[in-house]
Structure formats: C-alpha cells, structure tokens
Design a protein around this nucleic acid. Structure first.
Length: 780
DNA sequence: CAGTGAGCGAGCTTCCGCTTGACTT
C-alpha cells in the first residue's frame, strides 16, 4: 500500500516525477480537466445565481474511478496540478470528484521538474485557493454563456450548425477586416533608383551598390534625374562608421515556436504542436504549451556549460527574459531541450528539425550579443542635390549568430547589407549603371496561421493550449480557408542609364502570390457582419482583456465571481432576446439585377447549404431557381452574368456509348457524369464550354488510370479487387476497403485470403460515412 | 463525394481550456 498519491496533469510529467520521489509516492495523472459543464446542455443554473452544473467528462470516468480507488488507499493525496487558474480549478475538481476530506489532501506547486523543486514543494503544502478557482469558474461560465447563446442565434438568423465564441469570433474578425483592408487598398507607384559604382580595391575592380533614399513619384521625374546623371561626377562625401549590436531572441513559448516553425520549417500550427508533443512525451523537451520565456537555473547552467565547451567563454552571456504578453500565467518554463548537451534528438526527420530549432534558440538565448560595424556612405552628384547612399555591415563578433537568427514575417526580400570596400572622403567614383524602376506599394499582408496566433497572443486572446484548436475550428466552420493563390502579371517601367545613354523598357513581374494564407469565406464575412452589428462588445478586440481584468480581481478576492457574471449576463442576454425577436434573417443578400429571360429578380445570398444565387422570390407562385456558387466565386463580387451562367449547369454535352455526358459543378469542383460515374474536370476545362470530343478524352484517360490501379482481380467475385492506392496496396471488396496484412506481396493474395480479410476485418472496419461521423462526434 | 434551397416540424448543431490517445484510409 502506497502512503502518498501525487496527482499531476500530464502522464509524461508523472513519469518523470515518480523517479524523483521515493517508493512511498505513487504519481498519477488527471489528463487535464476531469469535470466540465454538460456537453450538450447549458449546464448553468441561471436562476440559482449561475450555479455551474458539473459532470465528469465521458473520457475521464475511468481516470476518476482509478484515482478514487488509489486515493482511498493512500494516507495523503498531493494535488500537484499547474500553478495557474486552470490548474487550481483542476485540483478543486479533483478534490470534489474524489470526495477528498480537507484533511486528506494537500495542494502543492512547483515551477521546475527537478528533485529539489519537488521536494521543496512537498515541504510547503497549502490549501486550494478558492478565489483562483472562482476566477476559473467565472471564465468557464462566461465562455459557455457567450458560446451557447450566440451560436443558436446564428442557427436561426444565418445558417444551422454555425458557432460563435469569445475567441473564435474575434479571430475571424481579424481575418475579415484584413481582407477588407486589402480590397480597399489602392496601390500607388513610385520610382526607386539604384546605382552601381566601380571602386578600385588592391588593383581589383569592386562593385559598390548604392541607393537613392527618396523615390520619384512619376516617370518624368525619374527620367529627369537620370538625365542629370549622364554627365555628372560622383564623389564620396561622407563615410560614417558606427558600432551596432544584435541581441538574441527569448526562448520559445508556444506562440513563438509556432511562428518560427512556420517560417523556417513550413509547419502548420497543428503540425508543430503534434511534433512537439511527441518530443515532450519522449522526454526530449520540456512542456510545449506555455506562455513563459523563463528558463530554470538548471537549464541556464546547462546552456552556459554547453556554450563554453563548444565555442569558448566569450560566447556565454546568461540572460533572464521577462514576458511581455498580456495575461500570461507562466505555470511552466519556456520550451527548451530537457538536456542542453543533447544537440540532436527526435525519432524522424520532422522531430529532428523541430528539436534542432528549439535547441538552437535556447542555446542562443544564453549567448553574447553579436557585434557589428555599420557603415553609411553618402555619395554626392555634381549636377544635382540628390545623394546616393550605400550601407555596409561588418560582423565583428558573431556571438549568438553562430547558432541562430530569428526570422521575420517581413516579405520584403531586400538584399542584406554586405561588406563595403574601403572608401575615403572626397574619393571620386566611376559610375557603371543607374537603374530607375517602378515599384508599387503593397497591401498589408494576409494572415498565416502562425501570424494570426501572434496577433491573438498580442491581444491576450486564447491560451497556448487553444491556439491550434481555434485555428482549426474557424476552418472547420468554413469561416476561413487556408489557400495558396497564384499571382498575376504586372508590367513596370525599367529605366537604365549605362554608357551615357538611357534605355527605357517595360518589364513584367509576378505579383500577389500567396502561400498558405487565411482568406475569409462568404459565410465568415456574413457571420462577422451579423455579430458586428448586434454584438459589438463581444467582438471588441479588448473584450477579453477587460474580462481578464475582472477575473484577476476575483482571483485576488476583490470581487465576487457571480456578481461579475451577472453584470455581464443581464445586458448580454437582453440583447440576445432582443435580436432574436427583432432582427431579420441575415443572409448577406445582394440584388444582382433582373433575369433577362423571365424579368425576375436575381439574388446572391447565404442559403442553408452555403453561398448561392436565386432567380425569383420564395413567395412567387412559381418556385424560385437555385444554384450554388463555385468555390472561386464570392457573394460580394459575383456579377449578374456569372450568376446566370451558374443556371446553365448541369448541361448535357453529348452522347457517348449510348449514355449522356453531363457537365456540372459539385462540391469538389467541375465534373463530368457519364453512366453514373464521375470524372473531375481538369483546371483548364470549363464545364460551360467543354465539348464532346474532349469529354470522351477525359473519360477514357480516367478509365486507363483506373485500369493501372488494379493489381489483381478475381474470377470468383468481380467485386473483389486488389488496388493500388495512395497508401499502398489495399483490398476493395463490395465497396469497402481493407488493409492487407503484411508478409506477402499484394499480387500473391488469393481469393480465399481476401474472404478471410473481409471476415476478420468487418468488426473493426466501418464504412466511410460512419467513421467520419464517429470522428466528428469525438472532436466535438 | 458529385445535391440541396419553399414550408411543415422533429432533432440536431454550439463555447474555451486542461490533457492524451485511437484513429489510419
């Protein structure tokens, strides 16, 4: 019988800690929260002063019954959950659901996972901080009230199965508003001038690049300037050298890790978290959901030893970083390698890459500044007052740059300043070439997943554990899509002065290329307008910050949590009721014009199944006609012509093998249907235009591809086939797919083998649709 | 996976923050 039961939040942490404590301690994990409000009902007794009605979460029933059994056997239960609002609440929920007497449990906290820290914690137990627990209850209840009152309102006024919440709705607002800014952005052009000079350095000609600091607003001015340069003399007027330094970035938090992994490794936010989780579980890194930039003393000591050993003493500079993030709770350390002397770790390529990033960032954070020498050179022009300037940078001491340089979101690919040749004041320069080219101002950048996380963190909205889920929620609800878009060609003026003559040219560049950026959908835009019109206070970027302030006051015992909730809810609920009664259906409806054939009105709006166009009114005698929008179309921009085109589909292209070929657009884009089989239309084919010959071609090509897919067929049963799929060979039998057991080549399976696979497989295999539903149920 | 959209009315959808598995076509 073990005397002491210690409960922490994560099983990986439990395993580590158990090693530090003696045999008298059994360490178990709660796997996060164990109780919550009802999954399907409101779970708040509003009449009874907002009393929350908690239930043990379905997936925690086993955890609780095991912990209950163990706690009965133990003398003392040590509640060692995280030292923050949620952690305190978890301890309280544990005490409640395990029915622990006040004398039976002790609450302890520790900030680093070392033997010392844990033994110190055990020596200084305390009770559960009720105020902190109440702050968490307020947070939980507020989020539930907002989410479960606004969402049903959306179902009634906009479209079923939508959702709204304190965090997700603001995330969508950021993206919608950025898109609006981009649409309204007027690009302006100007002329940028660059020059190349030749300098003699040790008998070798060296090129000196310089730039005109100001830009010309039109071509005429740019040309005038170049003309003045034809016969000008160029002289070095000033050489100014000054020292500069660069300092390393703080160690990783969840948010900065997601940003850097996105920029440097191209990982999505959720991929980064999945990989980090694996590294954490295998003991390679510390906890990956944190808002702290703090490193433990042990970690700093390990880092400094590692730096000194690898690079020398002059590279060591230990630093403490302070968080600047609003509402940071700092229950954990920054994300760092568990052992700084392990330079490489990870079970596969992506784990190794992410580990390397974390290792380098942590190491660099404890290294010396990089010392630079910056040189600014001013070059005078004899015929005019404008001056060129050239800048150079010499690295005097690498410091932390030896291992790591933080990247930026800046998309400008301006060339890094390099080394300048030695230059003296009054030195004449030989001009080789001056180029004036037209440049265009850029709209603000669209958000990536990672830059959205950064913005949310700045606003204090969301927590490390929710950044990745929030981003997937707004995509799952189809408020936002992650997309890459091809750029468009754009012409620009290119004027070059060379060998005393000016040449003019029109050049072409590609602009507006977007890779994995977040775009709002029609539904996202309409839901956002609805919420902005009726619930501006929830949509306010400062809403979270201001309620967090109140939660803090609850935590300090200055305010009663139910009072805070009541102040919010009474006016909020009135507004919900009022909107329910008075607001019309909100569909983002746009009147596009009249149908020339029937004279009826044509509308674009959000329907039950998403964006659509409609000819005629619902109350007309004749039923209105409907057509869904294509993926590349939007409510805000679709024209009457484009809308009318949508009604031309489905269209019969012709007859092949005695059956009609029909062209149409479905959920997955344009397609052909023939003999009740579907054939996707390639990107360049338009379903409105595609001809019979081309259609037959597409059908035959698909048939040929399908033939190549077949590895083996059976004479015994034509519905059984061994096929080559995306993940290797598999068995397709009566429309269901089965994995092939290992140890045999795919073509060697006999019909009897296959029957056996089907028989054994049926219990675990589900059909496509039920599996999808099952996974949805689990996620929600 | 390849429609649908009115209206009727049933029954469903939904939040944020803590944590891991069990899924793999």
């Amino acid at each position: 019988m073990v005397k002491n039961l210690v409960i922490v939040e994560s099983p990986a942490k439990a395993k580590t800690i158990e090693g530090f404590l003696g045999k008298e301690y059994l360490v178990k994990s709660s796997y996060g929260h164990v109780r919550d409000l009802s999954k399907t009902k409101l779970g708040i007794d509003i009449e009874n002063n907002y009393a929350p009605i908690y239930e043990i979460s379905e997936d925690k029933k086993n955890v609780i019954s095991e912990l209950k059994k163990l706690s009965k056997q133990a003398e003392t239960v040590w509640l060692a959950t995280d030292e923050d609002r949620e952690g305190e609440a978890i301890s309280w929920h544990l005490a409640e659901s395990l029915k622990l007497d006040d004398s039976k449990y002790k609450r302890i906290v520790f900030h680093e996972i070392t033997k010392n820290a844990i033994q110190n914690a055990i020596a200084q137990p305390r009770g559960i901080d009720e105020n902190l627990v109440n702050a968490q209850q307020a947070r939980r209840v507020l989020d539930r009230l907002v989410g479960f009152e606004l969402s049903p309102l959306l179902w009634k006024k906009v479209k079923p199965a939508l959702s709204a919440g304190r965090v997700q709705s603001v995330a969508v607002r950021l993206i919608v508003e950025r898109e609006k800014e981009i649409q309204e952005f007027k690009s302006s052009n100007s002329y940028k001038v660059n020059a190349l000079f030749e300098v003699n350095h040790n008998g070798q000609p060296v090129i000196l690049k310089a730039e005109l600091p100001q830009r010309f607003s039109n071509k005429k001015q740019a040309l005038e300037f170049l003309e003045k340069c034809i016969n000008a003399k160029f002289t070095v007027e000033e050489v100014e050298t000054k020292p500069a330094k660069k300092s390393p970035a703080a160690p990783f938090t969840t948010s900065t890790l997601q940003q850097e992994a996105s920029r440097k490794l191209g990982f999505s936010v959720s991929r980064t978290m999945m990989i980090a989780q694996k590294l954490y579980e295998s003991g390679k890194i510390t906890y990956m959901r944190t808002d702290s930039v703090n490193l433990s003393n042990t970690a700093i000591a390990m880092a400094s030893e590692m730096i000194e050993k690898s690079f020398g003493k002059e590279y060591v500079k230990t630093r403490r970083y302070a968080t600047k993030t609003k509402g940071a709770q700092e229950a954990h350390e920054a994300i760092r390698p568990t052992y700084m002397n392990v330079a490489q770790a990870g079970a596969d390529e992506s784990e190794r890459k992410l580990y390397e990033l974390i290792w380098k960032r942590t190491l660099a954070s404890q290294m010396s500044d990089a010392l630079l020498e910056k040189t600014n050179v001013t070059i005078g022009i004899s015929t005019t007052n404008e001056k060129f300037s050239a800048t150079g940078e010499v690295l005097k001491f690498e410091g932390f740059l030896k291992v790591y340089l933080e990247s930026t979101d800046d998309e400008d690919e301006d060339v890094q300043a390099g080394i300048l040749p030695p230059l003296k004041k009054n030195q004449p320069l030989l001009m080789k070439e001056i180029v004036a080219q037209e440049r265009f101002s850029k709209h603000p950048p669209r958000y990536t997943e990672a830059s959205l996380v950064k913005k949310l963190e700045e606003l204090g909205i969301g927590r490390p554990s929710t950044y990745a889920p929030t981003i997937s929620t707004i995509q799952k609800r189809e408020y936002v899509v992650k997309e890459s878009r091809e750029g468009a060609k754009r012409d620009y003026d290119y004027l070059v002065l060379k060998n005393s003559s000016i040449q003019e040219a029109r050049k072409t560049e590609i602009t507006g290329v977007e890779k994995n950026k977040l775009f709002p959908t029609d539904i996202g835009i309409v839901v956002n307008s609805f919420l902005m019109e009726y619930f501006i206070e929830i949509m306010d970027y400062n809403f979270t910050a201001s309620v967090e302030k109140e939660f803090d006051e609850i935590a300090q015992g200055l305010k009663q949590w139910t009072k805070v909730i009541d102040d919010f809810y009474s006016s909020f609920h009135d507004k919900v009721e009022n909107t329910l009664q008075t607001a019309d259906k909100f569909s983002g409806e746009r009147h596009l014009g009249k149908d020339p054939k029937t004279g009826k009105d044509v509308f674009a709006r959000i329907g039950r199944f998403g964006p659509m166009v409609q000819i005629g009114h619902a109350e007309d005698e004749e039923k209105p006609l409907f057509a869904g929008l294509r993926k590349d179309q939007s409510l805000e921009t679709i024209s009457l012509e484009e809308a009318l085109d949508l009604f031309k589909l489905p269209r019969t292209v012709g007859v092949y093998e005695g059956k009609d070929i029909v062209a149409a657009v479905g959920r997955f884009g344009p397609y052909l249907r023939h003999d009740s089989k579907f054939y996707s239309l390639p990107k360049d084919d338009d379903p409105l235009i595609v001809e019979l010959d081309r259609s037959i071609n597409i059908i035959e090509e698909k048939r040929e591809k399908d033939r190549q897919k077949v590895i083996r067929e059976f004479t015994e049963n034509e519905n059984y086939k061994i096929l080559k799929g995306r993940w290797g060979a598999y068995l397709s039998a009566d429309g269901k797919n089965y994995k092939l057991p290992k140890g045999k080549e795919p073509q060697d399976f006999s019909y009897e083998d296959c029957v056996k696979i089907v028989k054994e497989g049926t219990s675990t295999k589900k059909t496509r649709t039920t599996r999808k539903k099952a996974s949805n149920r689990k996620k929600n």
